[in-house]
Each structure stands twice: as structure tokens, then as C-alpha cells.
Design a protein around this nucleic acid. Structure first.
Lengths: 213, 213
DNA sequence: CCTAAATTCACATAAACATGCGATGAAAAA
DNA sequence: TTTTTCATCGCATGTTTATGTGAATTTAGG
């Protein structure tokens, strides 16, 4: 059983690459399998070196670090990718994370923390700076902005809409709420007006997407 | 302009509360506005003490820390809530974060890091342990895993299902795919069989909830 | 008090949908 | 080669929805 964590490092800035490489080599428990300036031979490098952790600069020439993540994960799905970036650009962060990166650090992070993060990520954690974590959280929280009152749905209309979202037919909703089916029809007409739709499916989709219920 | 960060602390364990309280008081740049064992007077405390940061144990007797987050955010939306917990229970994490918490630390985090996290959160970061960050990421990544194959939907059936999820009528789907409306019917029959539903709305709901598309 | 919503109900008709029972040809699997 | 699955189409029938029109009662706001 190997005890050290195999690392590959992609970084186009030579000084930085050599500096961090030296640090990685000097750290017991880590094994630097390779350090490269670009991802031109990514596939072969991943296949032959079989890294546990890939340290990846996000702004690489040629194939960007973001695309590279996808490739790393497709060739070695259990490899953990830790992104390094100078700027915390929201779009790039999300793209990289969606592509399968597991951690995200700013380059100005102290070297000791980068080392710690490599061990972290290898043990199943997702090291990221508090700033980046906040952006992820916001994306994840941004939801409940739009509420039912935006569309001025009355309480009863929301009841009916809940029934629709539950997948009920008009008749079931009527039974559920102890009202006639024509009343249900009437409410649904008003709901459609307010949501600007004209079918059950569209209303349900809008309700789900905008979390009106 | 006040320079210190006002903190309120909720923790039912007396020893822990007094220990951390002492630490908070001794830290320059922080001002401990209050430390309480429960959230029974949460509203008043938030209103009168106007904290910048609320340090909240997740497992409080009476009103749980998770519900408390919602209340804190409703009475002082710009207050940042930092959750503290012993176990990293996935459900509780997500509930707290959905309710508006901005950070999440395990209780065994070293006191120095808790202090650092308070400053972090006040400056717009979201401090969280690597383990918790991983869970958030996974939730956020779990999306694009087309589980359509779980139900053995054929490629064409997925096309039609996409049409339904887009809110199209049979006729529109038929036009879109250059097939007859009867063919659409036929595919939809098979989709219903495979998904075990019997209406457009149910199929759409299932597709959305389980991210089949 | 008056008006505007909201809630309830009714009748009617056309459109859309669900389902049953077929069928054909092509491609993939056995 | 035979069988199975897929994708395509048709017809028929009953059910559910969408929409028009109208109206009585309750509730909330000006």
C-alpha cells in the first residue's frame, strides 16, 4: 500500500511552478509525479502517472484548466482536482466546479495551506477559501428570491397550485379542498392569468423553477 | 464608525459557552454582545443587540439553531450567521445553509480558527471546513448526471420527454421532431409505462425532480 | 359605505390528452 | 436466423383541460 499522495502540477509560470514543485517534493507524504507548463499531453500524463491529486492552474495557454478538469475526470474519475487561480472570477469558479473540480484556492494562499489542502482533498474534503465558498453558497441560496407574492397569488390560488405541483387532477384537488371542480377551474384560470401561462404543465414548471410553492 | 465586530453567541453547553465567550471577549476587534443558552428571546436579543455576526450552535433545545437562522435573517438580514456543529449531518447542513447561514464549522475546530472565521464571515467570506464544503459541492454537482438510463428511456423517448419538460403540446413536439402526433402519443405511452405515471404533469414532475433531462 | 379582490359555483364547448388495439420496417441482440 | 427493441404511424373512444360567460357571497382597503 502506498502511503504517499501522488501529485501532478500544471502551471505555466515557470518560477511559480519550480517553487511549488520544490515545496511539494520536500514534503513527506507527498510525491510529485510531474509538473508541466501546459495540458497538451494531459491524457498520457494522467494515464501513465495515475495521480491522486491534480493541482491545476486555471489560466493555462492552449487547453484551459477548466476544460482540462473534464478530461482529467474522464480518464481518472477518482483523481481529485484542486484549482489554483489569481482572480476569483465567479463564472470560472462555477465552470470548474461543475466540471468536477473538488477544491479551489487563490494563488496567494500560503504554501503551507496549499500543502494542507492537498491532503485535505485527498481525504475527501473540498478546501476552498472563504470567499469562494461564499460564492458557491450564494449560488446555492439564490433560489428563494422569487416568491408566490411576486405574482400576487392568493392563498387559495396557492393551495390549488400546490395541488397541481403534486400532480393531482382537477377532480382530486376539488375533493382535497372540498370545493367543486368548477371552482378549481376558476382558480386555475386566475393562476394562468397571473403566471402568464396556459396549461397545467407550464404552470407546474413555472412553479417549480421559481419555487413559488 | 465602530471598528469592532459585534458578536452574539448561542450555545447550550455552559462550559463551552463560557470558554469561547472568554476567548471572544479577549480578542481585540471583536465585541461579545451576549452569550445565551437558548433562542427563547432571540427576537429581542437580535433587535436590541444588533449583532454583526451570530455564532449559533445547531443543536439547541427548544427552537433549533436551524430555525433560529431563519429568524435572525428575517430580523437582521445583514447579520452573518456562523453555524457550529458536532456532526456534519448532511441534511442539517443544507437546511441551515438554505435558511441563510453563511458559514459552517465543526465544533472541534481550533478556537483560533473560529476567531478567524468570525472575521472572515464579517468580511463577506463563507468559512467552512473542507468536509462540509465537499458536501455542498456534491449537492451542486450532482446535477448533470443523467439518470434517464435508470428508467431505460430510449434516446427518442428522452427527446419527447424534453419536449414535455419544455412545456410543449403533443402537436408542437411532433412539429419540432418532424413526426406525426400519433408517434408522439406512442412514445409518451412508453414513457408513462417506464416512469410509472399516467399524465403529462406527473411525467414532467418526475423528470424535473429526478433530473432525468 | 363603496369598490375591488377573492372565493365560490354553474353550464357549455373546443382542444388536448390518455389509452386500447392495432401495424410496419429497421436495427440490435440472442 | 429468430427475437426483441425502437421508431414510426393510424384510428377510436373516453377523459381531462382550457376557455368563454356569468353570477352570488365574503373579505379587505380606501
Amino acid at each position: 500500500m502506498e502511503t504517499s499522495v501522488g501529485v501532478i502540477y500544471y502551471e505555466d509560470n515557470r518560477n511559480l511552478r519550480e517553487g511549488i514543485s520544490f515545496l511539494l517534493q520536500a514534503t513527506s507524504g507527498l510525491e510529485l509525479l510531474g509538473a508541466f507548463a501546459d495540458c497538451l499531453n494531459l491524457e498520457e500524463e494522467i494515464r501513465t502517472l495515475k495521480p491522486d491529486v491534480v493541482l491545476m492552474d486555471i489560466d493555462l495557454p492552449g487547453i484551459s484548466g477548466i476544460e482540462a478538469v473534464l478530461q482529467v475526470k474522464s480518464w481518472k474519475p477518482d483523481a481529485q482536482v484542486l484549482m489554483l487561480t489569481v482572480f476569483d472570477d465567479e463564472e470560472k469558479i462555477f465552470e470548474a466546479l461543475r466540471n468536477g473540480a473538488s477544491g479551489y484556492l487563490l494563488k496567494h494562499t500560503p504554501p503551507s495551506e496549499i500543502i494542507a489542502a492537498i491532503f485535505d482533498i485527498h481525504q475527501g474534503g473540498s478546501p476552498m477559501t472563504a470567499n469562494i465558498a461564499r460564492k458557491v453558497l450564494q449560488y446555492f441560496q439564490q433560489q428563494r428570491v422569487s416568491r408566490a407574492d411576486v405574482y400576487n397569488l392568493s392563498a387559495r390560488e396557492q393551495d390549488i397550485l400546490k395541488g397541481l405541483v403534486a400532480g393531482y387532477s382537477y377532480k382530486l384537488i376539488a375533493d382535497e379542498l372540498f370545493i367543486s371542480i368548477d371552482t378549481v377551474r376558476s382558480h386555475i384560470r386566475h393562476i394562468y392569468d397571473k403566471l402568464q401561462v396556459n396549461s397545467k404543465t407550464e404552470a407546474v414548471l413555472k412553479a417549480m423553477k421559481e419555487r413559488l410553492i
